[in-house]
């Protein structure tokens, strides 16, 4: 870290060494940081030519890769709001042109898209709420030494992380439980998540136990302690659990594919997949319905297979794009906690 954080003027690395040096000095002084002219690090950096070349390549690599990660989303978004004819002809690559919002209004006229958006939203909200509550509750309960065979039951739950019966047995099981073709098949299997329980339990173990003891002296039972003391204190970790679970629910595709045949229960991801494979017929469907109701559909806003695909893709990705930058630290924390679990 020290290597990287010394210079605040990294954006200017392409410039000559001398300019970099002066800028760094002035910035450092302004920032009030002590200046060490004899700092070997600065000397090395200032003189090494190969290092500058390396820095330039490094920045070019990262700029390119970052562009590759970001551009596809940008491409989808500008194409979904641009002139549909130009978009279909592949002319919209850098800037939107002929901006209009018709596509978004029209795709919701497609059979089942609104319903599937509700299903996806519903499973995300309900599924996340349930798994957050269950993880918090179990994570807390498994810290209670008094519980009858606590260690055994804890391991009983955690060990399920390491084996998997497989796709077909899971399908047969869901069918035997009469869960196929119901909304609950989306949320119930995800309620008890061993990994989340480990996260919460580890977090609760870091809370001083004197808090709970004090509450017990005052006559509070476990449930009161859980609701009044532990749950509020666990908010940071529960935010992490919630955000991972919500993204997982929103992105989940396989369960619809396997357990659901009723089209009213399709998730948005599944609908997107279907539309990707049959967008041309859907464009006709939109054209037909638009023709009957509106009569006037200019060429620019007439739906094409391309416009429909891109618009639905944007609808599916937008929640993630909006949520992700604000909650990035929770994601990172979850990842880090997951790594040091044990």
């Amino acid at each position: 870290m020290s290597v990287a954080s010394v210079s605040p003027a990294a954006a200017t690395q392409v410039k000559t060494a001398a300019t970099v040096q002066t800028r760094r000095k002035s910035k450092k002084n302004r920032g009030g940081a002590p200046l060490h002219p004899e700092d070997p690090q600065q000397r090395i950096r200032q003189h090494s030519h190969g290092e500058n070349v390396y820095n330039v390549f490094n920045i070019i690599f990262f700029a390119l890769f970052t562009f590759l990660c970001f551009y596809p989303f940008y491409y989808l978004i500008i194409n979904s709001i641009s002139n549909n004819a130009m978009s279909a002809a592949g002319q919209i690559n850098w800037w939107p042109s002929g901006i209009h919002w018709d596509n978004y209004g029209k795709v919701f006229q497609l059979d089942g898209l609104g319903e599937s958006a509700l299903i996806s939203l519903g499973r995300t909200v309900i599924g996340t709420a349930l798994t957050v509550l269950a993880s918090a509750y179990l994570g807390f309960m498994f810290t209670q030494q008094k519980m009858w065979h606590r260690q055994f039951w804890y391991r009983f739950v955690i060990i399920t992380m390491y084996f998997n019966a497989g796709l077909i047995p899971a399908f047969i099981c869901m069918r035997n439980l009469h869960l196929t073709n119901t909304f609950w098949v989306y949320v119930l299997p995800a309620v008890v998540q061993p990994f989340n329980i480990i996260l919460v339990k580890t977090f609760i173990e870091s809370i001083p136990s004197s808090l709970q003891e004090a509450a017990e002296v005052d006559g509070a039972g476990e449930l009161t302690i859980f609701g009044k003391i532990i749950l509020p204190m666990c908010q940071p970790i529960l935010a992490t659990v919630a955000i991972f679970s919500a993204v997982g629910q929103w992105n989940s595709f396989q369960d619809t594919l396997i357990y659901i045949t009723d089209s009213r229960l399709y998730s948005l991801q599944y609908v997107l997949y279907r539309y990707l494979n049959q967008a041309s017929s859907l464009a006709n469907q939109v054209k037909a319905s638009a023709g009957s109701t509106l009569n006037v559909a200019s060429l620019a806003t007439q739906q094409t297979p391309t416009s429909i695909r891109m618009t639905i893709a944007v609808i599916v990705v937008l929640p993630i794009l909006f949520v992700y930058p604000f909650f990035q630290r929770y994601f990172v924390k979850g990842m880090f906690l997951g790594a040091v679990k044990g």
């Binding site: 970001f70 992105n251 595709f253």
Partner: peptide
């Protein structure tokens, strides 16, 4: 931020991107 973003989209969406590009 930008390079971790793709990790949070579904494979269906990756396919939608692949299809578009």
């Amino acid at each position: 931020t930008l390079t971790t973003l793709p990790n949070f989209i579904s494979w269906v969406l990756v396919y939608a991107i692949a299809f578009a590009l």
